[in-house]
Amino acid sequence: MRRTVTTMAAVSDDAALVALFERLALEAGREVMRVYREGCEVDRKADASPVTEADRKAEKIILAGLRAACPHVPCVAEEEVSAGIVPADLGAEFFLIDPLDGTKEFVNRRTDFTVNIALVRNGVPQVGVVFAPCTGKLYSGLPGHAEAAEVDADFRVADRRPIAARQGVKPLAVVASRSHNTPETEAYIASLGGAEIVSVGSSLKFCLVAGAEADVYPRFGRTMEWDTAAGDAVLRAAGGVTVTLDGAPLRYGKRNQPDDADFANPHFIAKGR
């Protein structure tokens, strides 16, 4: 399933793409951990969300690698979008990049932040990698297959294992945002009755559902597509689903929305099979 990727004129080999994503996520994660150890200033973007040197340098690493390997595939990356750099036409396939998901966790010296890279194909996140550099957790997914792995202190990958979302477990384990909980989320969890609640930051919430460590991730707060695409791809590869409140699959590449910004997600529920 894994092999080295140098250039791909078009996205056609999902296994090779996972290998590329993993390599870039590990490189970016190494830089994130350097900044984490040394410390850095925290700036604020126009929407008041935090951004750091780690976000910017990790994104630069990822974009350079993706554009070298797949020069014809558009890239939508959080910090570039914040700077006004957005592809004019997404086409049928595009990359979504969040170089440091969980910047609040990073700034507050917690461990549950991630590097996220995904390929969206016809509105569906089909290939994704999520790497938590502080804990060494690496998740990957492509249609029909999802994996979890451990990454050691030298950023070497070991102990790969397939993962699959579970179904029919009672009581449910519900994973909720550590930094963005809302009254609507609490009401939804209460409606499930007797659910165990696990709080964690970043896209790891999707990965816990994908790996059968949780059953449901309800999100009734604001997210952007780069926040969710990689974790969503892993979950779907593991047999789970992410749906909007009307039951439709969450779609990607949303632009010119009448009531929200480009790439903003509606509320959704991610769950096992």
Score class of each variant (00 low, 15 high):
Val32Phe: 00
Val32Asp: 04
Val32Ile: 05
Val32Lys: 13
Met33Gln: 02
Met33Asn: 05
Arg34Ile: 15
Arg34Leu: 13
Arg34Asp: 14
Arg34Cys: 11
Arg34Gly: 13
Val35Arg: 01
Tyr36Asn: 05
Tyr36Ile: 07
Tyr36Trp: 12
Arg37Ala: 04
Arg37Asp: 04
Arg37Thr: 00
Glu38Tyr: 09
Glu38Gln: 06
Glu38Phe: 06
Glu38Trp: 09
Gly39Leu: 04
Glu41Asp: 09
Glu41Met: 00
Val42Ala: 06
Val42Gly: 13
Val42Glu: 07
Asp43Met: 15
Asp43Gly: 06
Ala46Pro: 13
Asp47Arg: 01
Asp47Ala: 15
Ala48Asp: 15
Ser49His: 04
Ser49Lys: 05
Ser49Asn: 04
Ser49Val: 05
Ser49Ile: 11
Pro50Thr: 01
Pro50Asn: 10
Val51Cys: 15
Val51Lys: 06
Thr52Asp: 07
Thr52Phe: 14
Thr52Trp: 10
Thr52Leu: 02
Glu53Trp: 01
Glu53Arg: 07
Ala54Gln: 08
Ala54Gly: 02
Ala54Lys: 05
Asp55Val: 03
Asp55Lys: 14
Asp55Trp: 06
Arg56Tyr: 07
Arg56Met: 12
Arg56Leu: 14
Arg56Val: 13
Arg56Gln: 06
Arg56Phe: 04
Lys57Met: 14
Lys57His: 04
Lys57Trp: 14
Lys57Ala: 15
Lys57Leu: 15
Lys57Thr: 06
Ala58Lys: 09
Ala58Gln: 07
Glu59Thr: 13
Glu59Ser: 10
Lys60Cys: 11
Lys60Phe: 15
Lys60Ile: 04
Ile61Arg: 00
Ile61Gln: 13
Ile61Asp: 03
Ile61Leu: 08
Ile62Gln: 05
Ile62Asn: 01
Ile62Trp: 15
Leu63Pro: 08
Leu63Thr: 15
Ala64Tyr: 10
Ala64Thr: 02
Gly65Met: 12
Gly65Trp: 09
Leu66Pro: 11
Leu66Asn: 04
Leu66Ala: 08
Arg67Ser: 10
Arg67Leu: 15
Ala68Asn: 13
Ala68Phe: 07
Ala69Gln: 05
Cys70His: 10
Pro71Ile: 11
Pro71Gly: 08
Pro71Asp: 00
His72Cys: 09
Val73Asn: 08
Val73Asp: 01
Pro74His: 07
Cys75Met: 10
Cys75Arg: 09
Cys75Phe: 04
Val76Thr: 00
Val76Arg: 09
Ala77Phe: 14
Glu78Ala: 07
Glu78Pro: 14
Glu78His: 01
Glu79Asp: 12
Glu79Cys: 11
Val81Asn: 00
Val81Arg: 06
Val81His: 01
Val81Trp: 09
Ser82Thr: 09
Ala83Asp: 07
Ala83His: 00
Gly84Asn: 12
Ile85Met: 01
Ile85Glu: 02
Ile85Val: 03
Ile85Asp: 05
Ile85Gly: 01
Val86Trp: 09
Val86Phe: 12
Val86Ser: 02
